[in-house]
Write a protein that binds this DNA or RNA. Sequence first.
DNA 1: CGTCCACTTGAAACCTATCAACTATGGTGG
DNA 2: CCACCATAGTTGATAGGTTTCAAGTGGACG
Lengths: 288, 288
Amino acid sequence: MATPTRSRPPRPRAAGVIRALQDPAAGEPLLTRLRLLTNLDDAEIEVVRQLLSVPVRLAPKAEIGSRGEGSRRLHVLLDGWAFRYRLLVDGSRQITAILLPGDICDLDAMHMRSSEFSVATLTPCTVARVEIGAVRDAIVRHPRLGDVLGWLGALENAMLAERNACLGRRSAREHVTHLLCELLVRLSVVGRAHDGRFALPMTQEEVSDVIGLTSVHVNRTLQALRGDGHVERRGHDVVIRDLASLRKAAGFRPDYLHLEGCDGAGRAIRTVPSELAPTQHQPMLSTG
Amino acid sequence: MATPTRSRPPRPRAAGVIRALQDPAAGEPLLTRLRLLTNLDDAEIEVVRQLLSVPVRLAPKAEIGSRGEGSRRLHVLLDGWAFRYRLLVDGSRQITAILLPGDICDLDAMHMRSSEFSVATLTPCTVARVEIGAVRDAIVRHPRLGDVLGWLGALENAMLAERNACLGRRSAREHVTHLLCELLVRLSVVGRAHDGRFALPMTQEEVSDVIGLTSVHVNRTLQALRGDGHVERRGHDVVIRDLASLRKAAGFRPDYLHLEGCDGAGRAIRTVPSELAPTQHQPMLSTG
DNA sequence: CGTCCACTTGAAACCTATCAACTATGGTGG
DNA sequence: CCACCATAGTTGATAGGTTTCAAGTGGACG
């Protein structure tokens, strides 16, 4: 509710309310996340801003950095939704990551020759293409940037593992619910969700390729969720009515999103708003 | 079929047959993998050896580095099997990674305060506990070690994403088959599998927690696989009869294991034995 | 020789997939 | 403005894969 801050925030504090959340850094949500969740200083943030300074506009349903490109670049999503996916030999598709503003589409290109996973946009997207060599140079001069990249990689790892748990051990209803909770939290961090409401630019078929079900079944599951009053749909927006009960129903604990932040060396800094905070703030571990 | 080499291999070649495969480096399979898949020089390898020089012996079914420890250490599995897992609120368990000799159990501790995923042994294990500070010091002096750690992290991501695809889009039979193929390849790299045969020290219930099924259904699936002559059981050993047809049935392509290796900067070095090599060597992409 | 644990088997219930319409929505062009 | 079209969402009936529960088998080990 505070007025948005336009001036560059001086430096993230070790605790307290975040102003960066209300200041999406003029469309540079990666900077928002770094200010929010790391202790990078102004000089380091500025280096990142420079690296991101050549944005490209992409159409919806477009491939980002196809496999053949050789992956000498990183693609940073500045605006819009995208996803990483894998096609199986029988033609089915598994979406392994939903990419939101502030996400790096192909972090593995830093270390791998190429990934066999593809990336495509869902909506019109703004993407910064960053030469890997430039990133490496920046890390040499500012080693903490390397730590932050490592942290982002570990974060992806945690998200993949959590989705594994969803795919393997949660029911359709729990999984859908879990996905909505995760999206709400991640979007809130970059200022794309407010008051439990956000735009969901995915078809039910795309959702089904995330959670490993059929679009028909996703449809029925969403209907059930709506029927129980947990979720509402307003046009293309999803409105989450009762987050606490949804969290409980899904067994959703945001810990794996590591909102406690990182100081680049594995030590936590807490800068997260209470409404998104990990479990001790809102107990939700009672019996499912 | 070449005679095992005892002397330290001079340095990995850019191509050709690997001798390290026959030389499991005196029980230090991580060194084997690094020799096999990276271009670290003798000095760097020696630094790693020093870091791993304090092994600990652990009982089966023991927790490795429980959550409360604060994660100031990395745990490197030198011998035995372990797994990373997650307990859900309803008591069910999802195993998110099977850890084999040469794997790092908790790489995320480098960047995260702590993971909410636990690690436990399956068999008696030998584990090296490495202070994270020592690792960081080593990286400062030998930056390529940092690249290799990043590569190992990206590799874990790729394996998790592949399992996502299995959990979401493959049938029980395909998934079990895929798991067996993956284990065979990974074990072969560290000299724990020969001629399509390896010891599988997991109960069917543990397998079921990997692939998100019931132990009963895993049982029936394995029986079907045995009945079709694809797989055989000899005591605690699994014998894979027809790898090519299994690969095809599972849609298994070893590319995601990145056996093409890494030179620490995203460029590939090919040192992999042909029997394990990626798809161009053994076409297996015909219709499932 | 008894016990424990893992593995095995069967029958029934349940969840999810499949297939095939049908409806709603938004965009386009006449 | 309306007819038309393509796409996404919705619904129903049926088939099939997987779970559940319960019981029984088998081998390893003290």
